[in-house]
Design a protein around this nucleic acid. Sequence first.
DNA 1: GTGCACAATACTGTTGACGATCCGCTCCGT
DNA 2: ACGGAGCGGATCGTCAACAGTATTGTGCAC
Lengths: 214, 214
Amino acid sequence: MVIAAPVAARLRDDILEGTFPPGERLIELQLAERYRVGRAAIRAALVELDAEGLVQREANRGAMVRRISVAEAVEITQARAVLEGLIARLAAERATAGERDELRDLLAEMTAAVEHEDKLTYSKLNRELHGALRRIARHRVADDLVANLRNRAAHHQFRLALMPGRAAESLVQHGAIVEAVTAGDGPAAEAAMHAHLASVTEVLRQWEDFDRGP
Amino acid sequence: MVIAAPVAARLRDDILEGTFPPGERLIELQLAERYRVGRAAIRAALVELDAEGLVQREANRGAMVRRISVAEAVEITQARAVLEGLIARLAAERATAGERDELRDLLAEMTAAVEHEDKLTYSKLNRELHGALRRIARHRVADDLVANLRNRAAHHQFRLALMPGRAAESLVQHGAIVEAVTAGDGPAAEAAMHAHLASVTEVLRQWEDFDRGP
DNA sequence: GTGCACAATACTGTTGACGATCCGCTCCGT
DNA sequence: ACGGAGCGGATCGTCAACAGTATTGTGCAC
């Protein structure tokens, strides 16, 4: 995490933004040339991303961008649900006045984005809101775990954000979360976060049925 | 995870069983000789264990066994609480008749261990019970996360197991968990698991106050 | 035309050596 | 005695070359 950080970070970004789609083979020599580093640095980065679950490695067969099935995305979202529930509860207990304002501002921007039907901005603000909660909760362990889980399911998350009507539904749920957190009501914030991610899980489950349908 | 697996696994075991205590420096050349492998394999293993949080690496300064503060152990236990709560709930929903018997048997053995004041056996059965629940829940993502969190706080966990009277208190809580799971009551199982790990958190918090006391 | 043995290829895994960096220690000036 | 510059040992980071293994393509027999 320390030494290969620059290379691993660049490779991670490229994977997350789709430059290397799921299933793409990651050949050490090509990556070494692309990032202008030695093969050793690439190897270290691949080991790191493998441990993160973003990359899959097989002995003597090389590495590839990990494919996340919908079923696995459901599991990831369930794990996120309980962890972000914890984060929401702590955020409600620990938020300062300034941080509460910040959350309300973010929610206002999200509302505006929905009104303008700007899905991309909404998706970005969505990430920012969840990130703000993690920062406010000041819980390093949960923060790291959630960041990793989010990355793993990033593709499905993106697909979800583009669904028609999804942003509006999501906005209501985020409103409930922000309301509970700013009110300092931990249990309500946790419940609201659970409800939010349970609804995400539901959508994913429908895809699961659809994807393996006829 | 794949190729360095054998070396990483051996090193992990040695760290967990205390052969390399927290703070111990892990020098690549020494480890390479100890495990009869090249330095490259050691490097890969260290990167992997770094990502797991068991080892800390600094550029040009080498690796050492990560020290986990009591404060961090509290965070780890909180994260475990919500994840194992999810596991307990799923286990309650998914356990077969045979698996329910297995849980009851484990609980009976734990009761016997407490009666004989056999802390070591109790600790081992404790791990087995939590492991059985993870297996029964069939939730790969949560399983992996919890396994990792458990490893990270292993030392504190061990210290906890040796506390006088701790086993008896723990037994009651595990009884509640097993009862809820075998009854198929998901929410009750989740609540019982939360209560159990909340009590662990409480003990850790007392240590935190004590450790940095006078 | 089809199936199988076999060779060519492509990539990974490993090794050894070299250069870079950091830490502790000594030495010297004040 | 004290503090800072300089030196040396220890250890990591990187590179180039080689060996090993899986995969692909080719030719031959039938």
